[in-house]
Amino acid sequence: MIPREFAYERPESVADAAGLLRSHGDGARVLAGGHSLLPMMKLRLAAPETLVDIGGISSLRGITDAGSYFEIGALTRHADLAGSDLLGLACPVLASAAAGIGDPQVRNRGTIGGSLAQADPHGDLPAVLVALDGEVTAEGPDGTRTIPARDLFRGFLTTSLAADEILTAVRVPKAPHSTYVKFNRRAQDWAIAGVAAVVDGDSARIALTGVGAAPVRAEAAERAFWGGNAAEAAARAADGLDPPSDAAGSADYRRHLARVLTLRALEEAIGG
């Protein structure tokens, strides 16, 4: 529980932060809420030479209603997402997922940008972003680009962000008929499996947590849903899945959970 020595920088602008990342190279890591990175450092599973704390860049925090979508600053806390009446009504999948992350301490510190950039396969927000077909803004020394969710998550703890890019904002469409259903053993645990469901009339977008190295679109279930058939969709939710097997759940159990949770999520989303 004692990290290695590291240097600490607290830039006041995104440009300064990106510059620090570039000048420090591979030895630098971005620090946002710190609830993934700091435990790894304390366990000496991560040992960055320099932490670039972006917590002082106040422009990165907040939820903006931009008409058909929300623009959310990367440093917006899980507690802010969970407590947002705007999101609760117009994008409940995001609010409900955020409300179930960790415990109150984690939700008060953890950020949407940090969670997405961490890309933990048991984290909740990556699947939510995929189900919403959202996108993120990445800023680096070479400028700003937009990365759609489908291109962001590349595998276990891996994204398409460059080492000197900073995830600065998240854009998600409004999706009033949506929800996230998480399954874990205790209230504060990572998901053994989770389902983000976004229903839009006759169609649905469904993404799964905890059943692969990255969030998985349940495409067979989405096709089967056409016209609003939640049961048929749920039955196909595990098609093609190759989930991990561990102490919390065998691959078979996770496939079963994918089906059960997909049904629950779709029924709740339709009802919502």
Binding site: L43, D103, R185, R186, A187, Q188, D189, W190, A247
Partner: peptide, 26 residues
Amino acid sequence: YEEAEYDSGGQLVTGTLVDYLIPSAA
């Protein structure tokens, strides 16, 4: 919730409170 487990190599696999679950207030 709780179980301390060693793997076949004698390593403790429940070495953190992410793996060794104790009940919380919730």
